[in-house]
């Protein structure tokens, strides 16, 4: 259990609830003969959630810090992977499915474990082309194709 996380999340939730409550006060009136407005139930929920968050915040002071596991966490690899995954999401449309997926998989394989470059190239190539071929050519789905400047 991580008290800092619990506390920050509770505070964040209360802040979020405040925004939701403020927004829902604008929508309390019903329309078309409906007696309750669209903001009604969300407002109740936001109030309940902020109360629960306060209880959760309070509970962090009552629980003793349990023995923190000393485990080596690989945050560096995680952040790098998140970074390239986000880039992959953003570049999916501009670069097209095959190229962006190939690049993502190749880089991700290398981040997970360096070396065996040829293997990585073959596997990422097969997967990116394979999915594109199966989905777009065989199943007639839509995925971003190749960028126009490639001239395909």
């Amino acid at each position: 259990m991580n008290k800092t996380f619990d506390r920050s999340l509770s505070i964040g939730m209360v802040a979020l609830c405040a925004v939701f409550i403020f927004e829902s006060t604008k929508m309390l009136k019903g329309s078309f003969g409906s007696t309750i407005g669209p903001g009604m139930l969300p407002m109740v929920l936001a109030i309940v959630l902020s109360l629960l968050s306060l209880i959760n915040f309070y509970q962090t002071f009552r629980v003793k810090n349990s023995d923190e596991q000393k485990e080596k966490l690989q945050y560096k690899r995680f952040f790098i992977l998140i970074g390239i995954a986000t880039l992959y999401c953003l570049l999916l449309e501009p670069l097209g499915y095959v190229i962006s997926t190939f690049l993502f998989l190749f880089l991700a394989f290398q981040i997970m474990e360096k070396g065996k470059i040829l293997n990585s190239i073959i596997i990422s190539g097969v997967i990116s082309f394979g999915i594109y071929y199966l989905y777009v050519v065989v199943m007639k789905g839509t995925l971003p194709g190749f960028p126009e400047w490639l001239g395909f």
Binding site: A85, L92, T101, F104, F109, M112, T142
Partner: peptide, 22 residues
């Protein structure tokens, strides 16, 4: 090493195939 990036790629493919938005 291969499994994890593949799950990420399949998730991205799956969501994009249905939602078609970045």
């Amino acid at each position: 090493k291969y499994l994890i990036p593949m799950i990420v790629a399949i998730s991205v493919f799956g969501v994009y195939a249905v939602q078609v938005t970045t």
